[in-house]
Computed example of a mutant assay.
Amino acid sequence: MNAQAVETIARALHAITSIADTLTVPLVANLKSSDVKAGDYDVSSVVTEYFSENEASQILLGLQECGFYTKLYVGELEFITAILEGSFSNLPRPRKLVYNTSQSGTGAGRKSLIPAFCTLHNIPVCNSNAYVLSLARHKFHVSLILRALGLPATESWLFDEQGWLFDQKPPHELKLIAKACHESASIGLDHECIGELSYAYETSLARKVAALRQPFIVQRFIAGSEAEVPVIDLFGEAFSLDPVAMTLDGSPILGDRILDYDIVADDLGGFAMCTHLDQRTCEEMRETSKRVFRALGMTAIGRVDFRIGPDNRFFITDVATTPHLVRHSAFAFWFDQAGFRHADVLGAVVAANAQRLGWY
């Protein structure tokens, strides 16, 4: 366990308690039960990215447990209306910090609407700015940036409605995995996404591009295990927490298996500490995650995802600027293993932003 991170988080949680009674932290989120799914895909619904009623309650109760006042706004329109009509400014407490997870609609850039709108109205938000949020949701662009900086992102190619970008294709006999370029929560990811370059594979890709109305990133597939590294920025320094392994059937050794759409939608995957990896590999993944966090300009918190081969060689496969903080998440799992409460996850995120804003 990263002792320095544990100590720093404890110090930040202690500091935020001194101003908790001055803070309102509204939550802007989509709910699976709400009717905000206009333009949804026919398959792989975007609702996997939305909160259940229980998950929204976990966030709200966690914020309240930390001493913050909070209020739920369901979707962007409800929140924007509250700003424009003045009810938001009537919320109690002098300091307001918006925690946004909303991303109505489909396709690129949709999670950046609320941060951009809040910037226009001089309202601080948790996490990264609108540009970074949009950038991070283009998996191919992120891969190019990280590889250009010498970071170990997987080899990647782009396939869109015109075919391979600039006719650059992966080599034959290389195992591949294709992912929707602008999505998370494994939307569009199924067994057909894994294969080798062939006419049949390209035909399947073309169908997926048309169905999800966006390009697909095609990456070299890494057999082995999968891990997520949470990152939090406290007191001017980014701290990478210990890698958290993704598990299937209780095992962190996935081999050729992946956390596809059905597994993610039903929360069938689990979490474990990376005891199957040597200490040096875990430390190198933590250091790499800090570099990714800085390279992409993330703020407050983030997460870097890896696949690790049997030889312990690891590759960056994805990043998250607004990682899940509900109980079933890598962030919450690490906090639990470190001896913190679930509410402390929310407290630490608010503390990271409050410190950045000079509130303590």
Rank of each mutant, 00 (worst) to 15 (best):
I258M: 09
I217H: 02
T81W: 06
H172R: 12
N30I: 03
K32G: 07
N129P: 12
H121D: 01
S329N: 08
V43A: 09
G109I: 00
R341N: 13
P310N: 08
Q103C: 14
T8S: 10
L234T: 07
A272V: 01
A320L: 01
L158C: 08
V349R: 00
E155V: 03
L197S: 05
C66G: 14
D42Q: 12
V74L: 03
S87R: 10
A206K: 14
Y69L: 04
V74R: 09
A15C: 05
Y50D: 10
A5R: 05
F159Q: 06
L97K: 01
I222V: 15
Y69T: 12
S128L: 06
L357H: 06
N129S: 14
H121P: 03
A238L: 00
T101Y: 10
A211C: 07
A211I: 07
P310M: 04
G358H: 01
G86S: 05
E7L: 11
L120Y: 13
V125R: 04
D260A: 07
E284Y: 05
L189T: 09
K96M: 03
E196V: 09
R356N: 08
R110D: 05
D167F: 11
D305F: 06
T275W: 08
D336E: 15
G107K: 09
P171S: 13
E287I: 04
T17Q: 15
R220M: 05
A29C: 13
T299L: 14
N122Q: 14
D267T: 02
A12M: 03
A3Y: 11
I123F: 09
A343E: 12
E155C: 00
L357W: 06
H191V: 09
L248G: 04
D190H: 08
S251A: 09
A332D: 14
Y73V: 02
H172L: 11
F335A: 05
